[in-house]
């Protein structure tokens, strides 16, 4: 048993988990507002990261211009996607909506491979990469930045949902669309806004991962990790999604530790969350913190 390694892995788990949490939050945002299960969440990260990378390397823009431009693009992209693909599907069965986002996911994944190739591309050096020692553990400065950014996004979400007009409108729509509409809230507008915000927040996470480890199509796997996170945290809870993401991140790294110390199976990092997911669903079919639907005929 190496305690040093264990602590390092737990720390890594927290860092990665915070990013999972951010993506999971943007997933929950869409689900809460428009009842759409977005299987293309990972592709939002991918597109955001590639867009930013392209602006920074091809057009040689400085980061403080390229990054906002990429986010502006993602805003438009999210709205267009909602209006063009998801709006015609309102009222269709859940399966159709799930399939549509699955279709979006493979479409954009292939498109990105086509446009930018299959190899990982490093971001130009934006921040100085240093190793900082905290309590005997080595942490890259970029990771600290990513944790800080995750916290800022979380605070932003908290403020948005509790104090801003649009956030309150979104919560009202999530609670009851008809009532919200009768109070003068434009439901289509809320849907479009939720997709835009979700796309932007995912893109921020994508850029962070891209800065740390390069942009590649592997990024979209983050979108799949969202599912264990939301099942752990509950589909309709933003805070739960964040917690779920962190738990999944730590769980992955602990599984890797157990694997490297005793089992030697390999690949436990990626698979462990799915085992956890199946077991949780066996015991609690609505997830750990999900609200149980009571249906009346």
């Amino acid at each position: 048993m190496e305690t040093g390694l264990l602590f390092q892995l737990v720390l890594n788990g927290l860092i990665v988990g915070a990013l999972y949490g951010v993506v999971a939050m943007s997933f929950v945002l869409i689900y809460k507002a428009s009842q759409v299960v977005n299987f293309a969440q990972g592709e939002f990260m991918l597109i955001g990261a590639w867009a930013c990378w392209w602006l920074l390397t091809y057009w040689q823009l400085p980061f403080w211009i390229g990054f906002p431009v990429a986010l502006a693009f993602m805003t438009i992209f999210g709205v267009v996607l909602q209006v063009a693909v998801l709006r015609p599907l309102i009222g269709e069965p859940v399966i159709s909506v799930i399939m549509a986002t699955v279709g979006l996911s493979i479409f954009f994944q292939a498109l990105m491979k086509w446009m930018f190739g299959v190899f990982a591309q490093p971001f130009p050096a934006i921040f100085p990469v240093e190793r900082i020692r905290i309590m005997g553990l080595e942490v890259q400065s970029v990771y600290l930045l990513s944790i800080a950014l995750s916290l800022v996004i979380m605070l932003g979400f908290w403020w948005f949902f509790n104090f801003s007009k649009h956030g309150l409108a979104m919560r009202a729509t999530a609670f009851d669309q008809q009532v919200a509409q009768s109070l003068g809230i434009s439901v289509p507008q809320v849907f479009a806004m939720s997709w835009a915000i979700s796309a932007v927040v995912s893109a921020v996470a994508g850029v962070v991962v891209g800065v740390v480890s390069g942009v590649s199509s592997g990024l979209s796997f983050y979108g799949i990790k969202v599912f264990p996170a939301v099942i752990l945290g509950g589909l309709d809870s933003v805070v739960g999604a964040m917690l779920g993401g962190i738990i999944v991140g730590v769980l992955e790294n602990l599984a890797q530790y157990v694997d490297s110390q005793w089992l030697n199976w390999g690949n436990m990092t990626n698979i462990a969350p799915f085992y956890a997911l199946i077991i949780i669903l066996l015991i609690k079919p609505y997830g750990l913190f999900g609200t149980r639907n009571i249906e009346r005929v």
Binding site: A100, G103, I106, A110, L111
Partner: peptide, 19 residues
């Protein structure tokens, strides 16, 4: 990039048929 085009065609076919 023919393989990517095929994947895109699958995704596009799903979406277009659903809509």
């Amino acid at each position: 990039s023919i393989s990517f085009l095929r994947e895109m065609a699958i995704g596009a076919a799903i979406i277009l048929f659903l809509v």
